[in-house]
């Protein structure tokens, strides 16, 4: 042990004895000396030039999104959105869990069959136990007989699975971010309305904007139904061009389904506000835009 300490001391002495390079730019010590070399900041003679392309380890904190007029799609302005809303990394696993969760949740689970005591009919023994030369049988509702009950048939049940709220909310924003990152999220200022319930008008509009069938159809998300009755009616007829839903009707699967998402600014705001439980501590959603108060 002693020899080890001695060796160590010798080593440290020899290190001290070695001449230190004064010009080394990375000498920093944490001791509180008055020497300029001991300070935490680098001295003037050891300036590190700033990198020409500064690396951003975390990435942008906010992103710009263009707000468009409808139906001309004239760009109106840029608007900033937090990167945690519209610029999240694409997590396929989270999206997959959300879509499965939604699929399970929407299963009706109403398939139903009757067990032998639910089948209508007599419980009388259909033939004597012995002496007929035939198999023993009880009543005619036996699952073995035609017209009898079903032994292990389906009964109404709940297929829904669980997903933590925070994961689901993250999936919502991930889905929107995925669209944004692919350039498939078009944000519309105000309400999407058309003057007449004209199918050809909407058809031509979709073709002009590259939203139609050959461009992969479009999901139109609105704040409410008020004022969009004509447009909704037309979109129901133009199912091969896309679909129109309100912000509370769509789910994660819908956002991922078609060629692009065209969304009203207020609808996007409501979606983002009501799906940020992993970002905020409050469980109350405040500041939602009411569809009834929207100016059309």
């Amino acid at each position: 042990m002693r020899s080890a300490i001695q060796q160590f001391n010798r080593l440290s002495i020899s290190q001290d004895a070695a001449p230190r390079s004064i010009s080394s730019p990375f000498i920093r010590t944490l001791t509180t000396t008055t020497s300029p070399r001991a300070s935490l900041t680098t001295t003037a003679d050891t300036v590190i030039p700033p990198p020409s392309d500064p690396l951003q380890p975390i990435g942008p904190q906010s992103v710009l999104a263009t707000i468009h007029a409808f139906p001309s799609l004239e760009p109106l302005r840029f608007e900033q959105y937090p990167a945690s809303h519209l610029y999240l990394p694409t997590r396929r696993d989270i999206l997959h869990r959300a879509v499965i969760y939604e699929g399970d949740k929407t299963r009706l689970g109403t398939a139903s069959t009757k067990w032998r005591d639910e089948v209508h009919g007599s419980t009388k023994k259909i033939r004597p136990q012995k002496g007929t030369g035939h198999a023993r049988l009880g009543d005619k509702k036996s699952p073995m007989l035609r017209g009898g009950g079903v032994a292990f048939g389906p009964k109404p049940r709940d297929f829904s699975t669980k997903l933590p709220r925070k994961v689901y909310d993250l999936a919502w924003r991930t889905a929107l971010s995925y669209r944004f990152r692919k350039g498939e999220l078009t944000i519309i200022d105000g309400a999407m309305t058309i003057p007449y319930p004209s199918v050809s008008y909407v058809e031509d509009m979709f073709n002009a904007h590259g939203w139609g069938n050959k461009d992969g159809r479009s999901l139109l998300v609105t704040l409410g139904k008020k004022g969009r009755r004509d447009f909704r009616e037309v979109m129901e007829k133009l199912g091969n061009f896309g679909r129109m839903e309100t912000w509370d009707e769509v789910d994660v699967k819908d956002l991922l389904e078609m060629g692009r998402v065209v969304i009203e600014r207020d609808a996007l705001k409501n979606i983002l506000l009501s799906h940020q439980s992993d970002l905020t501590n409050s469980i109350w959603v405040k500041g939602l835009v009411s569809a009834n108060k929207q100016e059309l």
Binding site: A69, P71, S72, L73, E74, P75, P195, Y196, S198, S200, Y201, D204, M205, A208, H209
Partner: peptide, 10 residues
């Protein structure tokens, strides 16, 4: 009913 004109698109 108005028709969609090419000039309607920005």
């Amino acid at each position: 009913w108005k028709k969609w004109e090419p000039s309607d698109s920005y």
